[in-house]
């Protein structure tokens, strides 16, 4: 059975839940799996709608992924009008825009009842530091329980409403979120017989090399 298009689903969500503003995230790659970005305030409501709606019946939350997007400097060319040598001209000027980083949770939904999917929904935190809350969808799909815990552990997204949000893979008392892109590993001295590049730099800090004979 074929699922409705993303546009149709988006329109129906907007109809059913007032205030929800899902946004379609394009995907240029050959897979063409586009996704819906939900706003955190209405996410649980929308999720319930997706699960219970008779045409969608997305009763199966297959995969939950955390993604870390760092602060990004986007360089673009913007056309501006400028007076060059007395004549007004349209010139392209490079502008730098800073996109603040955020953490993202991506849910892949399928329907076991109607055998279609996937519908991909995304939730984003406001930033990577203190405003790292999103609502948990575990009350809607229990299958997200361990995966959300894993994302909390490795990325540090706090899922509000999760029944049991503890570290799952690393030990209690571990301070960092190791899957973040800016995580620095403990330097536990990687010895290699023929060190090169970064490993060599690391190795050097542990030894002063033996003098040449």
């Amino acid at each position: 059975m074929v699922m409705e298009t993303l546009e149709q689903i988006k329109a129906r969500i907007e109809n059913a839940i007032s205030g929800a503003k899902p946004e379609i995230i394009p995907n240029e790659s050959p897979s063409a799996q586009r996704s819906l970005l939900l706003d955190p305030a209405h996410a649980v409501e929308v999720a319930k709608f997706l699960r219970d709606d008779s045409q969608l019946r997305l009763d199966y939350c297959s995969n939950v992924t955390g993604v870390d997007w760092l602060d990004l400097i986007i360089k673009e060319k913007v056309k501006v009008k400028k007076v060059v040598e007395g004549v007004e001209k349209e010139v392209e000027e490079p502008v730098e825009r800073k996109r603040p980083g955020y953490l993202e949770a991506v849910y892949h939904l399928y329907s076991m009842a109607l055998k279609h999917g996937p519908l991909i929904i995304r939730l984003r935190t406001e930033n990577r530091a203190d405003k790292n809350h999103v609502p948990s969808l575990t009350p809607v799909w229990r299958g997200a329980e361990f995966q959300e815990r894993e994302i909390y552990d490795l990325y540090g997204i706090i899922f509000d409403g999760h029944p049991d949000l503890r570290r799952i893979l690393m030990w209690e008392g571990f301070a960092d979120h190791p899957m973040r892109k800016d995580y620095v590993e403990p330097d536990d001295y990687e010895y290699e017989p023929t060190p090169h590049d970064e490993v060599l730099e690391k190795t050097k800090q542990h030894h002063s090399p033996e003098p040449k004979p």
Partner: peptide, 20 residues
């Protein structure tokens, strides 16, 4: 590969094995 994303899955012996 081009910028983008993909999720593929198969019926592994233990269940749905997917890569995102």
């Amino acid at each position: 590969p081009k910028v983008g994303e993909a999720y593929g899955r198969i019926e592994g012996p233990k269940g749905e094995l997917g890569f995102y």
